[in-house]
Amino acid sequence: MGMNALVFNVLQEIGVNPERFSLQWASAAEAPRFVKLITEFTGKIKELGPLGQAEGIEPDEMKIRLDKGLAAVSSRKVRMVFGNTAKTIRKEGIFTQEYINGVIEAKLTKAITKALTAEEATEGAKPAAPEKEKPAAKKAAPRKAASKAKPAAKKAAPKKAAAKAKPAAKKAAPKKKGTAKKK
């Protein structure tokens, strides 16, 4: 239940209608209920139309936003906060959907927005990685990537993120290990 609250939050953040995701329950003996749920859900999605149409977002922009959302959800920071929040929910022992939604929203909104904006900062680093094959871009791109990735990571979590940034820098510039370390 915390999972769907997190997904709803991220979808809202990136501008996708959260109704496109649904978490429902039907036991093995409830075939008619399953049929009802699927029919309703399909009807709803048919009404909304293809992804991005109801939201008024172009497909290219949608792809970028979804990639961002995926990166945010996979980021260590968000996953850690999510895990801790789940732990506190278990401790308190209140499992109504409203309560869980409230707690998740209160604790995770900050981490999600941070992860989404941090993704913007490191976005320059990602396309730089495949560019290393191109001889022309070899000199300029890796350095930029390393310098961009480091300050963004420092903001998020000084010590842990530094370890995270290093492998990223290594990927970007495998030959320039020395320069990256000196910095």
């Binding site: 496109r20 649904s22 429902q24 039907a26 859900f41 709803k44 909304l48 992804l51 995926l70 959800v73």
Partner: peptide
């Protein structure tokens, strides 16, 4: 999120 990236219009999770 990966499902949406790969082109799903809606995602149903059933437990």
């Amino acid at each position: 999120l990966r499902g949406f990236v790969e082109g799903a219009d809606g995602i149903f999770t059933g437990g």
